[in-house]
Amino acid sequence: MSINKILQVRGMSKRFGDLVVLDNIDIDIPIGSHTTVIGKSGIGKSVLLKCMAGLLEPDAGIVEIDGKKGSFPHCSYMFQQNALFDSFNVFENIALPLRETQTLKREEIREKVEQIIEKLDLNSATYKYPAEISGGMKKRVALARALITNPEIILFDEPTTGLDPLRKYGVFDMISTYRKKFGFTVLMVSHDVPEVFEITDQIAWLEGGKIAFWGTPDELYADTPAPLKPFLNPKLETSL
């Protein structure tokens, strides 16, 4: 196990009934990198992420984060729909992981939460409820909640679903900016080809339960596997 791999997946398989979603997948995520999993809708990208986070039990295979199996103390997860608690205000939402899993004093928690609210520019929303703030802000609150425990890796499940192109760039910008600022590793599932290529280091293309391509965006453009071509340029393909 080399030291610069933060996340390792070995031989992961998952099937729902007769449908094989993941077929013996191996993945290595280097520390500090930004990896994006792309692929068609319903191909199993979210399943892959959920298996990694322990939300789904894979039929076979192991996941190691930071060399540890089973429990992932330094891993956070961002949900498609943010999964904020609507009966808690923004402050309480961000403080939740600290309040519930650590033995910090009230003042220490307050201090930490206020720091992160400051950094993510959420001051105006501190005591508002999730229903009262905009979609972009919710994303930032969810990110704040993911960041509060100082994770080494954050898994993003389609962070830009349902956002307009401008906001989409905003979210990508936010992820890459804060990645540099906080120094966490990113593993992301996204549909947003090619926008996502601007911020990601590596692309993993999931097709038929396998990783069909693994490499940098440049490599992908230089040597596109034939089945991935329509994915990169759908307009060209449909007009033919």
């Binding site: 322990g54 956070s76 498609q80 729909q81 999964a83 904020l84």
Partner: peptide, 15 residues
């Protein structure tokens, strides 16, 4: 809360 993935969110927060 289950449908809004809040329960999954709790698990990922180790709660």
């Amino acid at each position: 809360q289950r449908n809004a993935e809040q329960i999954d969110a709790l698990s990922t927060m180790k709660i």
